[in-house]
Simulated assay, not measured.
Amino acid sequence: MLSGGFLFLVGAGFNAFAQKVWMLIVGRMLLGFGIGCANQSAPIYVSEVAPYKYRGALNMMFQLAITIGIFVTNVLNYFFAKMKNGEGWHYSLGFAAVPAVMIVIGAIFLSDSLSSLIERGKDEKAKQELIKIRGTSDVEEEFKDLVEASQSSAAVNHSWATLLKRHYRPQFVMAIAIPFFQQLTGMNVITFYAPVLFRTIGFGSNASLMSSMITGGFNALATFVSIFTVDKVGRRKLFLEGSAQMFICQVHFLLIYIFNY
Rank of each mutant, 00 (worst) to 15 (best):
A154S: 00
W89G: 10
S152G: 03
A175K: 01
G121H: 06
A177Y: 01
I133E: 09
K165I: 04
K125E: 15
Q128N: 13
L93R: 07
N157H: 14
A126H: 07
W89C: 09
H90M: 12
I108Y: 11
A97N: 05
A161Y: 02
D112I: 06
S111A: 15
A154G: 03
A154R: 08
E124K: 03
H90A: 13
K165S: 05
K165W: 01
K132E: 12
A126G: 11
E140F: 09
W160T: 00
P99F: 01
A149M: 10
K127H: 11
L164Q: 00
W160I: 00
P99C: 05
K122G: 03
A161R: 04
A107F: 13
A161S: 03
A175N: 05
T136E: 00
S153I: 01
S150A: 04
R120N: 12
A175T: 01
E124L: 06
V139C: 08
G88M: 09
F109T: 15
I178L: 11
A149R: 09
A100Y: 04
I118V: 05
I105Q: 09
D138M: 11
I176M: 05
V104M: 14
R120E: 10
F109Y: 15
G121F: 07
G94T: 14
Q171I: 04
A161K: 06
D138P: 06
V101C: 08
P99M: 00
H90R: 15
V173D: 01
E142Y: 04
K125R: 14
A155D: 13
G135Q: 02
E119P: 05
L164V: 01
D112S: 07
G135D: 04
S92Y: 09
E141W: 01
L163K: 03
P170W: 02
V147E: 02
S137I: 02
S92F: 08
S159K: 03
R134A: 12
S92R: 05
M174V: 06
D123V: 06
L117R: 10
L117M: 14
S115Q: 10
I103V: 14
F172A: 07
K144C: 06
I131T: 14
S92E: 12
L93F: 15
I178N: 01
G135R: 01
R120H: 11
S153E: 10
S150R: 00
A97W: 07
Y168E: 02
S92I: 09
M174S: 00
T136F: 02
W89R: 08
H167T: 12
A107K: 10
R134I: 10
V173C: 00
A96Y: 08
